[in-house]
């Protein structure tokens, strides 16, 4: 059974593909790492999976998942830290999927938020202003918001960057529980040891699929070498894609 299926998916900007002609399936309740060199299209793929970027061609079949069933933590989170808001309020935004524009936040919701903040080591930080915490603490708060969202598909783009070793260990323990709870996880990671520890499957990208399958096989030496050789960026003189042309 699949959670998300890609059909000849091409994603990019201004007609330039960042990643193209991807076919494959993210299995239900499976943790998949997306790995590849800089500029290989990893973050673009997550944007496309989240529905934040429309495909240039092909499609993403989310098997009926709605936007509220998806939690997405982008690499460039875009939170304005000067905004007059507390960490507790930021985490509470994760309840939107269930409460909508008008729904009241009840005592149980407040407990959920407190519990999530404690889980990421931010217990007692509920009333701290966004501009009074460190980058790592803000990242932990965004992780807490993902917990609060209670989503079936969780997309994390380099979630452990800027976090200290202890926090990373604590959060990895949380992530490892998600597949067992039936959640599908797709994570962009650079640390291959962490990939082997957390993710059963790996998609190795270099602007196209190099390998996709069980982690140990996908991260074989030959595949890594091939990924390194492929082009990092589009060509300024690129012609129309021959595969699109043939279709």
């Amino acid at each position: 059974m699949s959670a998300v299926r890609l059909h000849d998916l091409t994603l990019g900007y201004e007609r330039r593909p960042a990643v193209h002609h991807l076919d494959g399936t993210f299995g239900l309740g499976c943790a998949t790492a997306v790995v590849g060199p800089n500029g290989s299209g990893k973050s673009t793929l997550l944007k496309g999976l989240a529905g934040a970027l429309a495909p240039l061609s092909g499609r993403v079949d989310r098997s009926g998942l709605k936007a509220r069933d998806i939690a997405y933590l982008p690499q460039d989170h875009g939170v304005d830290r000067t905004f007059p808001m507390t960490l507790g309020e930021l985490v509470t935004l994760g309840l939107w999927g269930r409460r909508g524009l008008f729904g009241a936040i009840n005592a149980s919701d407040r407990h959920t938020v407190e519990h999530a903040m404690q889980a990421v080591g931010l217990g007692g930080f509920e009333d701290r202003a966004l501009d009074s915490v460190s980058g790592g603490q803000l990242q932990r708060a965004l992780f807490a918001r993902v917990l609060v969202q209670d989503a079936r598909l969780i997309l994390l783009d380099e979630p452990f960057t800027a976090l200290d070793a202890r926090t990373t260990t604590d959060l990895i323990a949380l992530v490892k529980r998600w597949p067992g709870e039936g959640r599908t996880v797709v994570m962009v990671l650079h640390d291959l040891d962490m990939v082997r520890e957390v993710c059963s499957d790996t998609l190795l990208l270099a602007r196209e699929k190099v390998a996709w399958g069980p982690t140990e096989a996908a991260l074989g030496g030959e595949n890594l070498l091939k990924a390194r050789r492929l082009s990092e960026a589009w060509s300024q003189e690129a012609a129309v894609c021959s595969r699109d042309h043939a279709a």
């Binding site: 936007a67 989170h77 939107w96 966004l130």
Partner: peptide
């Protein structure tokens, strides 16, 4: 205002 990326990804108006 604080997090427009989250709003878009959550399908909120």
């Amino acid at each position: 205002s604080a997090d427009p990326v989250f709003m878009r990804a959550s399908g909120l108006p």
